[in-house]
Amino acid sequence: MTSTASIAADFTARPTRGSVVRFVNSHTLPLLLAAVFIASAISTPDFATFANIRAILINTSIVGIIAVSMTAITISGNFFSLGIASSTVLAGIVFLAVSGLTGSALAGLGAAVAVSVTLGIMQGLIVGAGLNPVITTLAVGSVIYGLVAIATKGAVVTAGSVDVAWLATWNFLEIPLPVYIFVLFTAVAWFLTEHTLIGRNIHLLGANRATARNSGISPQATTIWAFIAFGVGLGVAGALNASQLHQMQANDLAGLTMDVIAAVLVGGTAVSGGEGSPTRSALGALLIVALGNIMLLHGLDNGWRVFLVGGIVVVLVVALHVLRKVSTR
């Protein structure tokens, strides 16, 4: 027989245990990242050098920007976009073409963002109407790839003699611009997602679509906002990528979609929606690149690096899923 005292003790203990689990859940990634960096700085030669840390940040920036911008889609319960690679290539090609025509990289950047946002709105309309987001984004990605391939005839697109490289090479304290844009983008996305009405609507829509609708939240409008944020990220990332390499072609960025999805998952955003944060997606992208870098510095072959990073991603995603379940019990 359970005593009143034990029930009371159990009742009062629950929030404490829940709080601990919630704290661990929300701080697992930053804690893990900090542990990885400290341990690697001690144990891995050349890890803590400025050049290496800069390389990690540069490699994180473009995948990170897209992962951060896609987080709103996942939180809103619309899974992922599977058209990331072709959409980023399109943005890069628009950036180069418009920069070449106007002589201004900023005009190219504006055009890339405008095109990506327009495509985002179109996809948002379709997905918001209730169509499966995976099929929609996959089909749109396929259409974009086909159109880019037809329009460019597979040729390498450049901006001609116009200097677009400064967008990727301009630096402050020897850290190039894409890294600052990544940090700024993460901060803005975090603010919009956590501290604005549309951000709260995105969370609520993902957590419980029926309740959100009953509360007067428009699933369509909210989904469109999520896709607009995604479009901005794609436009910026496509332009930065194209400026970094001064060129783009239809078949580029083949592995980008999976890199971005991995970053969002490692960040702990719930695939089913309602839970997640752009900041954690940014840290997820950083952790994946850092792990690959550490293994490279230890001289592991490419096969082992891919295997181990993949394994760690699986373990992390499972652990975060279990923690989330426990904390919501």
């Binding site: 179109m122 379709i126 109407a129 169509l131 089909a139 790839y145 086909g146």
Partner: peptide, 21 residues
């Protein structure tokens, strides 16, 4: 209505992409 439009857009997209391949 949006669903119908979306289905039409997707069907066109899939046909275009298949043709492109």
């Amino acid at each position: 209505a949006w669903r119908k439009i979306a289905v039409a857009v997707l069907a066109t997209g899939l046909l275009t992409s298949t043709a492109a391949c």
